[in-house]
């Protein structure tokens, strides 16, 4: 029974989650695109000393955060850069990416990037418990961060902590690669047959949480991933 649940999570649920996420994002973006434009400019004017940066640079570097809350900005930058590296690290598991050597036991970042991301999420979560942020936060804010934290933490265990065992890595880049490659080619193979070891259950938890995250994404404020640039463009006029 447990094996069947694990299989459902690691294979069919992944396809459902990815499809759900893509359709959700497309629908959400289409709804905004279909809405009428605002009847007048929403531009805020720059001056010579503090120009409002270009929409792309503004969205990526968040200069307003850097100016007004540098600590928060450091964590935001670490988090977003970390996420970008982790996406790359997951893609690198596929055979046609060779950023890290094929025979490397580590994923890109050697597990450290995941720890940085987890620390940043923990910071985002903890700051919400302090006033005045607590007053403006809603349950969805805490839950989303908690989900992200658990996903990142389980990722840390399988990408980094699993190398702490006496015999070295329990799960390696090749193990994850075989699983992801199977998913990519719709082999419908049970990853449990190729991956064994005590940490497999952590992989299942990580995949389950990641699936949940993908399914929640189109309905959450994480959609700012797609809207940050158009939003910054509105401010720039």
């Amino acid at each position: 029974m447990v094996n069947q649940i694990f299989y459902l999570i690691t294979v069919p649920m992944v396809y459902v989650a990815v499809a759900w996420c893509i359709v959700g994002i497309v629908v959400k973006v289409a709804r905004v695109a279909k809405a009428p434009a605002h009847p007048f400019t929403l531009k805020v004017f720059p001056d010579k000393d503090h120009p409002v940066p270009s929409p792309v640079w503004g969205a990526l570097s968040m200069p307003t955060v850097r100016r007004h809350n540098p600590t928060f900005w450091v964590f935001l930058i670490l988090f977003h850069l970390g996420i970008a590296v982790l996406i790359l690290a997951h893609l690198d598991l596929l055979p046609w990416f060779n950023i890290y050597p094929e025979d490397s036991e580590h994923m890109i970042g050697n597990g450290a990037v995941g720890v940085v991301v987890t620390t940043a999420i923990l910071y985002f979560l903890l700051r919400r418990f302090a006033s005045p942020l607590r007053e403006i936060s809603v349950p969805a804010d805490y839950l989303l961060l908690f989900l992200l934290f658990c996903t990142a933490m389980s990722g840390d265990i399988i990408s980094w902590a699993n190398s702490w065992s006496e015999n070295g890595f329990v799960l390696t880049k090749q193990d994850f690669g075989a699983y992801l490659n199977g998913l990519f080619h719709f082999s419908w193979a049970d990853p449990a047959e190729a991956i064994d070891g005590g940490h497999y259950v952590v992989l299942v938890v990580h995949v389950f949480l990641a699936n949940l995250f993908l399914m929640v994404l189109p309905f959450s404020k994480i959609m700012h991933t797609f809207f940050a640039i158009p939003l910054n463009k509105l401010r720039r006029g």
Partner: peptide, 22 residues
Amino acid sequence: RLTKAAKMYLDNCSRCGLCIEA
């Protein structure tokens, strides 16, 4: 009143709280 801008403003605020001190 739900223009493109209004929808994006209502959907994407992450309640980071940076505006509080503004």
